[in-house]
């Protein structure tokens, strides 16, 4: 049955309309959760606001369980959907560069687009910087990045299979770890905010 567009059940125009509608939901929720405020985002690294961690893991676990069940009961063919291939070296290096981008700039691309749209000038500047960064990458691709980007290729790797456990067990463990993390960070946040008398 699913996914509906890749299996030709719905047409291209409806697919793009759905993209727009799903985007509205995503953007609305990011804004409503406070992700247009760069100080709330950076808080995850300094202990005064863990909203990023709470939203991020709740979303990933909800989607992970939902997609697993859809696939398990045969409602969605996982082979037809976008499945990021693993290139562990460039993902690790690129991720570390993104960590610097996050700590210094206070946004990631999705949150900066939301914040820029709502008028935050620092976010508009961040989006501008990101576009320049992509231009720089594109024009130096052959000389600087191409070999690194293709290194460490592992193909499509499922983390549960890679660890040698079932997907259901992996999702269960991930949920338990997240629940413990939610409990601990809530305590940390209370202490940090009290100690520094922190106001956003």
């Amino acid at each position: 049955m699913g996914p509906l567009f890749p299996t030709n059940i719905i047409g291209e125009e409806l697919n793009l309309l759905l993209a727009f509608l799903i985007g509205i939901g995503f953007g609305f929720l990011l804004e409503a959760a406070g992700f247009t405020n760069t100080r709330k985002l950076a808080g995850v690294f300094y202990g005064y606001d863990f909203v990023v961690l709470k939203v991020f893991f709740s979303a990933a676990i909800t989607a992970g369980i939902g997609i697993y069940l859809l696939s398990y009961y045969g409602y969605m063919d996982i082979k037809e959907i976008f499945y990021p291939q693993t290139y562990w070296i460039p993902t690790l290096v690129g991720g570390f560069i993104m960590a610097f981008g996050f700590i210094i700039g206070g946004f990631c691309p999705g949150t900066s687009i939301c914040a820029a749209a709502t008028g935050k000038i620092d976010a508009i500047v961040f989006v501008g910087g990101a576009l320049i960064g992509i231009f720089f990458y594109a024009f130096t691709y052959e000389s600087l990045w191409m070999n690194l980007r293709e290194s460490g290729a592992m193909g499509k790797v499922n983390i549960a299979e890679w660890l040698g456990i079932s997907q259901g067990l992996f999702l269960f463990l991930l949920t338990v770890v997240a629940a413990i993390a939610f409990y601990i960070v809530t305590i940390i946040q209370q202490r940090v905010v009290l100690k520094r008398n922190f106001k956003l």
């Binding site: 760069t38 991020f56 990021p84 291939q85 290139y87 460039p90 993902t91 290096v93 690129g94 991720g95 570390f96 560069i97 993104m98 610097f100 981008g101 996050f102 700590i103 210094i104 700039g105 206070g106 946004f107 990631c108 691309p109 999705g110 900066s112 620092d122 976010a123 500047v125 961040f126 989006v127 501008g128 910087g129 990101a130 576009l131 320049i132 960064g133 992509i134 231009f135 720089f136 990458y137 594109a138 990045w145 690194l148 980007r149």
Partner: peptide, 20 residues
Amino acid sequence: AAASGGLLFGIGSQLGRGCT
């Protein structure tokens, strides 16, 4: 800082095949 962070995120997201 925002411009520099954006620049780094732009580069990193291309090398890493996507962002957060």
